[in-house]
């Protein structure tokens, strides 16, 4: 297996997710299958191909530099579990 439990733990930590040992084993197996599937791409010769950056053949989708009214402070905060003086209140982020 090329994807190890250690890899799963590292990605889980970066994503702030907690898993039981059994879940980690299962995830490692699934991720390994996905990676193995992607390995198939190596069979193709891509040396002379330009990289594809987007699945749709589009570029330069712009808007002009114009403002529209923002949503109200009340709407912006309405899903927040905790609010203080118009701010989102979140668990303390620095010691």
């Amino acid at each position: 297996m090329s994807v190890t439990i250690r890899d799963v733990e590292k990605v889980a930590q970066l994503a702030k997710l907690d898993f039981s040992h059994d879940q980690k084993v299962e995830l490692a197996r699934q991720l390994d299958e996905i990676v193995a599937y992607m390995e198939k791409l190596r069979e193709l010769d891509t040396d002379d191909l330009q990289a594809t950056f987007h699945v749709q053949d589009l570029d330069n989708v712009f808007r002009d530099d114009e403002t529209k009214p923002s949503i109200s402070q009340e709407s912006a905060l309405q899903n927040a579990p905790r609010v203080n003086r118009g701010y989102f209140s979140v668990p303390k982020a620095i010691g």
Binding site: R63, T67, S70, I71, Q73
Partner: peptide, 29 residues
């Protein structure tokens, strides 16, 4: 499309894109 001007009352220059609400799409200025 919300204003990029400095300052203002907190969270009064918000829009669904900069709040990261589900289903929104960024469009480049």
């Amino acid at each position: 499309t919300s204003s990029a001007a400095f300052g203002g009352e907190p969270n009064t220059k918000a829009d669904p894109v900069c709040l990261g609400l589900p289903g929104v799409l960024p469009v480049l200025n």
